[in-house]
Design a protein around this nucleic acid. Structure first.
Lengths: 337, 337
DNA sequence: CTGAAAGCGCTAACAT
DNA sequence: ATGTTAGCGCTTTCAG
């Protein structure tokens, strides 16, 4: 049996109320001498407060949950680190959960987290599964990241369409006319918007989008690899990918089919994860202010926890094009080696 | 105020004990009619049990914690996925925590997790910080992964020395005589053993290890990049890296200094993360059975949770050399382009 | 300045 | 088959 507040009280010859007061630093109401004595005993005995019991009465746990679709995606793990760092600075613990981009697991985690009394949740919604209008079932404050949810607007996002517009525009300005698109899940909100930006740029520059050259799948390296088989035989000179992981896989896959990037085909990514920079070739991509977004989202959540009635507004960040080696002018001014 | 068991009891015109019985599927002791009626009400009202209150009395939460040093490292995120999948299959929720490879945060998480009443913890110990012999302070069952802790033997590991021996031996057999080593933190147990395997292979084949060509740092891509500056000017034809991330960074970094892998220098990694396969060049590495290790560790933890008195034995997995394109014979039989 | 006692929501004997 | 009751470990009025 673990040491309880009662044991400490007994040892100190006081009531548990008094012990509770010193534990929680209630300044008033305890003589300095008793306070020191109690502190001493707590230290000696290695007493640790039972957070569960405490939270039953305070309804506060000083912890938050973070649900992301995929820890393996550096974009999300960067977010995780940022949320953790911010939360830690405020004395909060964060429990990270991996929804596998699946509504089912997301729901389970929301329940599990809520049941365990986290004070709030930062949620990057899953995009696999059908979301009922109000099955959100949040029982604690939630702030969204990366993907909005209808009817639930507090969150931090980026302008996806504009970001992808930038990447597409670059390609077009470099002379590319036949473009492919490799998206994540078509049902995904971000994919839809990035695709929209892609098409908008094409239309603005009078380029026709051939739906047959637009592929959709997961947001992973593997998906990029598997898309490469089709892209390799398409009559296109460039491919816009909905994220860096897909681009990474695509570039690796194309190589197997004898297509070199950027010589034979230009490729762009999205997110600007570290790997896009160190890949060979380094990848032209659209930067998201990941760290900042995680920090802001976390602070918004804390505000919401303090004042649930507060009407907090969403925040939309701008993106930035990062030009690297996976894109080149077309037709090439210099012949490929 | 959230709905409690009492409310449901009142609505059903029964006592809370009865409601509790149907909630927990205690087969005996409730008439089929009452049971159905109660279930119906619970459904209608959307009642959700208060897990905190419940766990206060049952001392069980059906959740475990997983502490890893770095979510950004695919090796660890793969472990996380495996642990999650295994736990989920047993109806457990896992809370993932990121220690940043830091003892301080590891400790905080162990407390936080324990305080929140997780039933057990899978821990990949941090290697930054000095570990007191018994400041482990575990208050719940723990199984270790990847890195042993003195005096705490339940865990799943691999034979690091042997793995690195394999990689080093390959290089030597291919004619390399001047080898560099890029490790993670020198204080890290795995690094120490991989370094040992490296030296053992060298000594077995009569090759002298020059300590000046052995670099240590973090287990990251960035570390690999920063090592590249020194490696680039060393008189070595190959470099053994303590993990794939370092190898990835090293290869990218060397390129900036005009050194191409494998033409100018051969490089090996460790772990066999997906990226080592899709990198250009793909990386020769030492495979760890990551998924299996995570699953086994989780099951060991469950055994321990069921029977804390059980003497469970650690498990050591074997590694396997995966030969790819980042290594080649030396001197090259064909001149580099 | 300190203590007594109620209660957070639930489970588990023990009664009936 | 169902109800009563005593806690789980803590905080928090309310008294003294």
């Amino acid at each position: 049996m673990r040491l309880t507040i009662k044991h400490i009280a007994q040892m100190a010859g006081v009531s548990n109320a008094t012990v509770s007061r010193v534990i929680n630093n209630r300044d008033a109401g305890v003589g300095e001498d008793t306070r020191q004595r109690i502190k001493q005993i707590i230290r000696e005995q290695g007493y640790r407060i039972n957070v569960i019991a405490k939270s039953m009465v305070t309804r506060r746990t000083n912890s938050i949950g973070l649900i992301i679709p995929d820890v393996s995606n550096p974009f999300f793990s960067d977010i995780a680190k940022s949320v953790e760092a911010t939360a830690e600075a405020s004395g909060f613990t964060v429990f990270l959960c991996n929804s596998d981009d699946t509504l089912e697991r997301e729901r389970r985690y929301i329940s599990a987290l809520g049941d365990r009394g986290v004070d709030g949740i930062v949620l990057v919604p899953a995009s696999i599964g059908t979301r009922e209008p109000d099955d959100l079932g949040f029982i604690v404050p939630v702030v969204l990241m990366d993907r909005p949810l209808s009817g639930r607007n507090v969150g931090v996002y980026i302008d996806n369409a504009h970001g992808e517009y930038l990447a597409t525009e670059l390609l077009i300005k470099e002379g590319h006319r036949k473009l492919a698109f490799c998206g994540g899940l078509r049902s995904d909100h971000n994919v839809a918007n990035r695709f929209k930006g892609f098409r908008q740029a094409c239309s603005d520059y009078g380029i026709e989008v051939n739906e047959d050259t637009c592929l959709f799948g997961e947001f992973t390296v593997q998906a990029g690899i598997s898309h490469s088989e089709q892209i390799a035989v398409m009559d296109v000179s460039a491919c816009v990918c909905a994220n860096d992981l897909i681009a990474l896989g695509l570039i690796a896959g194309l190589k197997k089919f004898g297509k070199l990037v950027p010589n034979d085909i230009s490729v762009t990514g999205f997110d600007n994860i570290l790997l896009s920079e160190i890949n060979s070739p380094s990848i032209t991509t659209v930067r998201q202010p990941t760290i900042e977004m995680g920090a802001i989202a976390t602070r918004m959540l804390f505000d919401l926890i303090e004042k649930p009635e507060l009407k907090i507004l969403s925040k939309v960040f701008q993106t930035e094009l990062v030009i690297r080696d996976s894109t080149r002018p077309f037709p090439a001014s210099q012949p490929s080696l």
